[in-house]
Amino acid sequence: MEGGPLLSNWWVKESKKFVPYLNISAQLDDKPDQKLMREYDLRGFPSFVFLDDSGLLLFGREPYWRPDSLLSLGQGLNQVEVLFQLRKMVEENPEDQIARARLTLIEGLLDPSRVDVARMDAAAKVEGVPEELVEEWAMTRIEAKFLSIFEPYRSAYQNKSDDREAKKTAAIEGCYRMWVAGEKLDSTSGTFRPFLVLSFDGALAARDAFIAEDCLALYEELFGAHDRFLKGMKVRLAKMVASAKKVEVGSIGGSGE
């Protein structure tokens, strides 16, 4: 990059369209912004990303992007320029519902883990919003919904918060409700395993043997019969079914008196 694209005429010309910021990791504490790569969770060299004036990462984290041609740089620029234009439009005309909805969707899609699902849903319903944005949100929605349920639980455990058990219960119930509503994460998703386990736990808590069995079968299929948690899950399901049967028998016996 440094011996080629970053010396080219197109690079010099295009650099007027952005603020070029250079971060050199030097393993010297007196140099500027030495911890920034870690803050942005960037792990490889070289890394190129677009940021806004608040430092929010807009483009380029994953998959790693290199502006090594005019075309590649243009792809990144096009994405962020739309965002900048929309922000300006909304600032100048706060009543512009379409611009506002587009902005909500684009900004939300940048970080689905922090998104307000209801706000995004409302934005997606605004007439005049580009179809591809609505489709992208539809694909991301289930993942975002799961993350909004899962993240409070995960962070409570990470920080050993006092309310972690309550957060766990909320996550279990939330995932179970998603499963019942047919809002299932794609099994190729990186967060599918916790979703599946929490849904299973939720089904057990709700004494829903049908969904618990469904989750367990899928778990075994995806993670194998020798998975170290599988046996425990099977035992818990068997216990729940047995106790449900006891309750059933007890209630039949009770009605006969």
Binding site: F18, P20, Y21, I24, S25, A26, F45, F50, D52
Partner: peptide, 9 residues
């Protein structure tokens, strides 16, 4: 304008 950040070492 957006910021294009280049991280190198």
């Amino acid at each position: 304008l957006p910021i294009l950040a280049y991280f190198t070492r």
